[in-house]
Design a protein around this nucleic acid. Structure first.
Lengths: 218, 218, 218, 218
DNA sequence: AATGAATGAGCCTTCATTCAT
DNA sequence: GATGAATGAAGGCTCATTCAT
């Protein structure tokens, strides 16, 4: 369901297909840059390393991206959009009403879907997390364009379930933050911090959802 | 209580007093480095910038720290120790038994104490979070020395309260991770991500503790 | 004769043509480096001086030579080969048999030929002499690869003339060392120590040969 | 004999006793400097290395020697004087007349005496040889003060034996150069180039003397 | 006399970027 | 479009030297 949603959104906003317009070399450049930026960080990666790993001449990078920073932005910007895509979906609320009877189902869907996404895009997400704080352009994008939209939309959902008496009465932003902490905490631990553990995702997701719903009291 | 504990620990392990052995210039160098590393990241900060901000000659930095990386390590290592100090405390468990009647009280104490610590050391914690993934020396310190000790000790506490029937029956590591997500989520949001919001810490901590204990069902 | 020999050797081993593969700037860099290294010594010459004298950017040096030491080695290594080239010639002994009836003729040919070589390559030979003792890489090249080959071959020549009764009976290595002292002594004095004297090379060579053959007794 | 001569000269010119006026630390500085300069060359040796090896503070070096170069000069200048001391001896000619009946005896005495000196002072001689070409101050000392005196005096000796018909008729400077080549060639090979060979000095000296006198013809 | 912290010029090297081919 | 040689500014670090203690 959520996957279909995302595909629909993507087709509307063309969030998925950037690579299709790229030349062969351009794709190799991006792949090499992602790998290196994730491994050593943006500032510690040199354009010559990227060129070497991509198997292109150093000049070729600058034919496609005016500066090294433009290369970074062209990597991070799409992932930010895709990361929050399902939440930005225009008719999310309406769709939601009909799809998820309980908040619990919504949580479960989000967690599954975003975990899958994170596993597929772990290196780019790592880059995003590390570079956003140091690049005002990226911060602006996140703080002014993406975050408010998401917050607003999720707030409506929470308010909706609160009004149905399914959720505790609490400032929605606080409630969202705490639930999000658990979800994000798992997804990051799972995909970036300890990806080599033996994870039973289904089990862990179920526990997280139960924890969010009922806490740790027996 | 926890504060006293920490002071005791500190006095035992001398975790607090590094700065007292430093010369005047050395302190200025560290302060300048912390400021710049937090603002621009380690790799993007030049030693000449640090020297200028510290008001010393560039050579002076290298008289005290053989390399730029040694300067980073001398900043990050102590904060890692201090960050987990209360948990590493040898007789933590015993002390705990007598101090906290319920798990809830423990959560509250930890959250208050570590938030205060994070607010006081926000820039260094930011540096630590950003640089650990790129510096094997720091990873080693964290993964092999600090993390296991903490995990082990907190696990005992959780098991203790589980055996008293106060906590739901669940793998302790999972339970800890989820509770920690909420605590860490708040502390990072509060001190690094959105420090400029108007936060009512007492209220937020209480809500977080209740969330951890009872979830979001009414 | 010896000249033809050397040309033949060179054509076989391509010892002469390194410069032909070099770019215009690379030649200028080498020339400037040779001039400066000979004038001030390797350690006291800065890469920025070399760049300036060569009329290139400092970075250009490092595009062609990964390090300053690699630049030194690329200057010294070929001269070592060329310096001993005639002696390393595979069929030297056979050629010699037919060319030089007496040891005296051999001495004369070697002295003329190597003096000409030294005069043409004085600065590089100066560099070689000064830097070999401080750079293990160069020592190895000399001690293990070049020197033994030469010593071995010249030893055979000496033994040959000794067996013909033309030379005094004495350990060949000692005899070679003493004759070489005279030859090298003249060539170095002539080309490096006092190059500005008015030298009559033909006369001095003849005297040196007579000295080697008959000593200083009347 | 030659030793007594030297002692007499030394007492006259105070060439031997520099160290006696030195403080303990000063001696250690000189020793450390000699060791390092000989091992790595003057330009490649740092004052801090010298200080460390000497076990003194870096500042102490500059209390005794205004600059690093002054330290070098204070090492090299005395060795130059001592190296040629026997030849500079005022009444050398007269003394000689009575001491050495044949030129051969003179050669033998010089070779023995200067070899002993070279073995005792090998590192300083190495420094001298390497640094003279790069330091005009040292060149001046050598070319204008020491060398002419020596050349002049030895020339008289050679002329003396030539007039007695003991030596071949040849420009004295040429004759000296060739004999000196053999002597210097052996001493340098013996003390600096291949000091680790098994040398039979008495034998080698005798062969060298015979070579100088009679050449290599049987 | 001796120290060693402090200096800042200068070192070798790397960098992102340009441009002729 | 792709190349890679060339650039020169800037990087981290070392140096000889000074000076207050």
């Amino acid at each position: 369901m959520a996957d279909e949603m995302e595909q629909w959104l993507a087709s509307l906003l063309r969030l998925n297909d950037e690579e299709e317009k790229m030349t062969d070399k351009q794709i190799k450049i991006i792949q090499a840059a992602v790998e290196m930026f994730a491994e050593k960080g943006y500032a510690a990666t040199s354009t010559s390393e990227i060129a070497q790993k991509a198997g292109v001449a150093e000049g070729t990078i600058f034919r496609h991206y005016k500066t090294k920073k433009e290369l970074l932005i062209s990597i991070v910007t799409p992932i930010m959009s895709k990361l929050v895509a399902p939440f930005v979906l225009r008719d999310f609320h309406k769709v939601l009403d009909s799809e998820y009877e309980h908040f619990e189902d919504f949580l479960r869907a989000v967690m599954r879907n975003r975990l899958e996404f994170a596993l597929k895009n772990a290196p780019i997400i790592k880059i995003m997390l590390h570079e956003i704080p140091f690049h005002p352009e990226l911060q602006t994008q996140f703080k002014e364009q993406l975050f408010p939209q998401v917050a607003d939309r999720v707030k409506r959902i929470v308010t909706h379930f609160q009004s149905r008496g399914e959720l505790v009465d609490m400032p929605p932003f606080t409630l969202i933050r705490m639930a999000a902490s658990v979800i994000v905490g798992y997804i990051l631990t799972r995909s970036l911090i300890l990806p080599d553990n033996n994870w039973n995702d289904a089990e862990e997701i179920e526990r997280a959802v139960q924890f969010i719903m009922h806490g740790i009291m027996p």
